[in-house]
Design a protein around this nucleic acid. Structure first.
Lengths: 171, 171
DNA sequence: AGGGTGAGGTTGAAGTCTCAAGTACTGCCG
DNA sequence: CGGCAGTACTTGAGACTTCAACCTCACCCT
């Protein structure tokens, strides 16, 4: 985790400073409240949680409104299992349809239906407004830029690919 | 949501700009990945999800290691119902104990047990390390400060108290 | 061709969260 | 005092998530 003289001794934990703790606490609070807020907003107005809404958006943005399951999972940063359950639910709503992949018999496409697209069209403005009101309206341009950069850095550091990229000593 | 001439017309939605979209996307990705990362880390090392760990921390920080249920819920930014279930589970683990409030017979204290404190003592260093590695080690001091301020602003805007504070026209 | 390895995706059970409803008590007002 | 409105907390059912199998098919190697 950090440069210690080769084969380090018991290493007493390095705590967060008071300031770091304050930052971290604020982060947790903001994220918890925001997730909650958006989940409720969307559950009320669109009948689905935020993650599911995000899936529809990804599909809507994709060519032919479809994406392979694994692709969609990767975009949305969720596990394939979670996606599988989610798509099952969205399929019951008639908002998504599964389609076999012709070139790979194991593959499945998730396809946004017209009905699904319609839900999106109807509910997107409200959702955008909620995001605006909770986030963008409150931040200066400089803060918005900063937020973007910070989140990019954090996300990048956690990309599944790095799952050992920092453990070179494991061969 | 924004200044329109009194009694606005149908109001076409105000979308996010490209840059705002990028910021928002990064935010979602970072938050999703981080939550996931920490949940797994704690599930593996401490046998509980991140939220539950947070509850133990709040209790540990409180005088006499106890907090009224409602207080705890408020601190942790979760509903009382959720807390109730959570404490039930933590109680099964022997990490928390409920105690009646003498001055209000409806009230309950959640109390951190010695065993619970011990779990915390054992697992906190690993958790702090994970947070450090995922967040603080990657951000400059200026970015850390900025993050703190941004998150404070967002959290403040969503504090349950504001549940109508911005709808003065509803009397 | 045959067999191994592993990728793509699903499944079921156990855990967690939400929502609406319920119980028990407090505080207040007449 | 008696009631009644609101506070504190819990409960149960249904929705969602996780984890560890599991199945099918693709690819590669001999």
């Amino acid at each position: 985790m950090n440069m210690a003289p080769t084969s380090a001794p018991a290493q007493e934990p390095r705590w967060l400073t008071d300031e770091e703790q304050r930052v971290w606490r604020s982060y947790i609070e903001a994220v918890t409240l925001l997730e909650d807020h958006l989940d409720r907003q969307l559950q009320r107005d669109a009948g689905m949680p935020h993650v599911y809404y995000g899936l529809l958006v990804k599909l809507a943005e994709s060519p032919r409104r479809r994406l392979r399951m694994t692709e969609l999972a990767r975009h949305a940063k969720i596990t394939r299992s979670r996606l599988s359950h989610a798509v099952a639910r969205l399929e019951k709503n008639g908002w998504v349809r599964r389609e076999d992949c012709p070139s790979d018999k194991r593959g499945q496409f998730a396809v946004l239906t017209d009905e699904g697209y319609e839900v999106l069209r109807r509910t997107a403005p409200g959702h955008v407004a909620a995001v605006r009101q909770a986030v963008f309206e409150r931040l200066s341009p400089a803060q918005q830029e900063s937020l973007g950069e910070i989140m990019r850095i954090i996300a990048e550091g956690l990309q599944p690919s790095e799952a050992g990229a920092d453990l070179p000593w494991l061969r």
